[in-house]
Design a protein around this nucleic acid. Structure first.
Length: 651
DNA sequence: TTAGGGTTAG
């Protein structure tokens, strides 16, 4: 190992200033080593900046700070001990609270009395670990020592009690405080927002003597959290000034509430105001791109990150992996995954589910094993991803092994979503009776999603008997869900029970249930084009329809025959063909074939699942026109190439 | 010194 020598010191710089010049932990450790080599072990003035940097800097190392603190030959000052507790409180290190307690006890061993700073940081450490009772003990010490007079201390107590959901306790401290400031008010408001009392939060917001950016952002965050996006936007517009956090809250609010187009529009507005986005904003923009399947926008964000040399933390790389995977570019997703240095359980999960939804479930299962091999424990979400992968490749036995290992090996209790994956696994494999008895023997009450998974499987395997039982159950318990009616009606239609099929449609009409119209998106040169079935609103409508008719002629020569069983039974055969013949994905394919270079890949995003007819038509289009066509439906990707689909006709 | 923001599944 070669150490960089400390440069000659023409200006007689102290060691302290040498440490100040270091830019990274590596440089720090090198300079520190030099000190030890020169026999100048731990002179207190130079120890201080190393510990502070290691404890507080985002690229520091809190464990190194602890090591230096406890190995110090000269007793550290109270300031330094406080700094380390402060660093521990803000770190995400799992043992940070117990380490804070060690430092606190070390203080007593050194006969140093804790001060108001010490307690502020200790309360912060308790807040971050949700350690309400420990915090209460410190609170009694604070009251005895009159540290509660300090507004920083009382604010950190209010913060602790509100994040733990003890709003009455927090309010008591707030009401009894001699001095309140804007931070005290904000902590109370955040507590109310966090635990769902938005009206009390709004009351306090109105009563506040002064408001800064944080108070506005808290209210904005509260409205977004409870899905009141329109109210939130009104606040966003009215705010006296918006900072970066306001933009993050609003853009992420749209992205998380299924309004990705609004998220992108707001991001464009932000750019037009020459505001530089930070990593949190880009994460939300990437999530919006994922939802829209907007690869062009998403890759632009990726190049922006590279151009600005932004730090690739695990959240940002997870968002990138997810974006590429959900835009059907699984190769690029895996490139980001391989090159990212910080691979945590979320990055793995994004990659695993990305592989599974892109028809590479065996790879997904391998990656899950690799993750465990790296010593990263799977969490509840990664189990959903791996169970889905099992389901796509029909690995029933393996799926049950994983399901058992959740609680046996990792102590994770399976939730409804995991049971739904298991029902899907059995159902897809055609084991419908087993799936039904699995549901009835579940230790928790099955919900509509679980019965829905079984109904979907009955459709795939054409089982009208179980389908009828489950479908009628769902039509009672999930009356407003359009998909249940359509599935059941199609199950009947496909097993030639035309009367029953029509009866379901009638019930649907009687109950005034509107069917969510299918639509397909295709992005071209940064513009998203949207089509619905039989849509005539696109400006190039004439060309598009002509092209599809041409395409049909071509693929008919290769054996294409329109499949019309699963459509409304009260229309004539010809009309059925007309309805199904211009499904939104077909129009998007025709548009793509006209306006893209021969041989280039078409990427289409659909809001509902693809139907049998479109699936077989697009398979042939990929062969006849020599195009890769990627269709993302509600659940998975279909990579069509040379007459085949990555889903192996199983979806 | 104390308060507000981001990802993965279904």
């Amino acid at each position: 190992m070669v150490f960089k020598p400390i440069k000659p010191n023409p200006h007689n710089l102290s060691f302290t200033s040498i440490f100040h010049r270091c830019k990274s932990m590596k440089e720090f450790k090198q300079s520190h080593t030099q000190l030890i080599i020169r026999g100048l072990t731990h002179p207190p003035p130079s120890l201080r900046p190393v510990i502070s940097f290691s404890a507080l800097n985002p690229s520091g190392d809190i464990n190194y700070a602890l090591l230096l603190l406890f190995q110090s030959s000269t007793p550290p000052a109270i300031f330094l001990l406080n700094t380390v507790i402060r660093g521990l409180a803000r770190s995400s290190f799992t043992d940070s609270l117990s380490s804070s307690l060690l430092v606190f006890r070390h203080m007593a061993e050194l006969n140093l009395a804790p001060n108001n700073f010490t307690f502020t940081f200790l309360f912060q450490a308790c807040s971050n670990s949700g350690a309400f009772e420990l915090g209460q003990q410190f609170h009694s010490r604070v009251i005895k020592n009159f540290f509660g007079m300090d507004v920083f201390v009382s604010n950190s107590v209010i913060q602790l009690y509100s994040v733990c959901g003890k709003l009455d306790d927090a309010r008591r401290v707030f009401d009894e405080s001699i001095k309140l400031d804007v931070v005290s008010w904000n902590s109370m408001i955040n507590g109310y927002v966090k635990y769902g009392d938005i009206s009390e939060a709004l009351n306090m917001f109105k009563e506040m003597p002064e408001r800064n950016d944080v108070s506005w952002n808290s209210i904005l965050g509260g409205l977004v959290k409870y899905g009141c996006l329109d109210d939130a936007y009104r606040v966003f517009v009215e705010m006296p000034q918006r900072n970066l956090v306001s933009w993050v809250v609003m853009i992420s609010g749209y992205a998380q509430n299924g309004q990705p187009k609004e998220a992108l529009a707001l991001f464009r507005e932000m750019q037009s105001l020459a505001q530089e986005p930070n990593s949190a904003i880009l994460v939300s923009v990437l999530s919006a791109c994922s939802q829209l399947g907007a690869l062009d926008h998403g890759s632009w964000v990726h190049s922006y990150i590279k151009k600005k040399h932004m730090r690739m933390d695990s959240i940002l790389s997870t968002a990138l992996i997810d974006m590429y995977a959900k835009c059907g570019s699984i190769e690029l997703a895996m490139q980001v995954f391989s090159s990212s240095r910080e691979k945590d359980v979320s990055a793995y999960t994004a990659a695993i589910s990305g592989l599974a939804m892109n028809g590479r479930s065996n790879k997904a299962l391998q990656l899950f094993e690799q993750m465990k091999g790296e010593g990263i424990s799977p969490d509840s979400i990664s189990y959903i991803a791996v169970l889905c992968a099992c389901s796509h490749v029909g690995c029933v036995e393996k799926g049950f092994e994983y399901f058992a290992s959740m609680s046996d090996v990792h102590g994770i209790r399976p939730e409804l979503d995991h049971y739904a994956c298991m029902v899907d696994l059995l159902g897809r494999a055609g084991l419908l009776e087993q799936a039904e008895s699995f549901i009835t023997s579940m230790p928790i009450t099955p919900d509509n999603v679980i019965w829905g998974a079984l109904l979907g499987a009955c459709r795939v395997h054409g089982n009208a008997e179980i389908g009828q039982r489950v479908g009628n159950l769902l039509l009672k318990s999930d009356q407003y869900h359009d998909g249940r009616y359509i599935l059941l009606s199609n199950i009947y239609a496909e097993s030639m029970k035309e009367k029953d099929s029509e009866e379901v449609r009638k019930t649907m009409r009687r109950r005034k249930i509107k069917r969510v119209p299918g639509c397909s998106l295709i992005e071209m040169n940064g513009v998203v084009h949207e089509f619905s079935a039989g849509d005539r609103s696109h400006e190039k409508v004439g060309e598009i329809y002509l092209m599809w008719e041409e395409i049909v002629k071509e693929i008919q020569n290769c054996g294409y025959k329109a499949e019309t069983r699963a459509v409304v039974f009260d229309v004539e055969e010809e009309e059925k063909e007309a309805i199904i013949g211009y499904h939104s994905e077909k129009l998007a394919v025709a548009f793509g074939i006209i306006y893209t270079k021969p041989g280039s890949t078409l990427r289409i995003v659909k809001n509902i699942r693809i139907c049998n007819d479109c699936h077989s038509a697009i398979k042939l289009v990929s062969k006849v026109f020599n195009r890769k066509i990627v269709v993302r439906d509600r659940k998975i990707f279909h990579h069509f190439e040379d007459g085949f689909c990555s889903c192996m006709d199983y979806w």
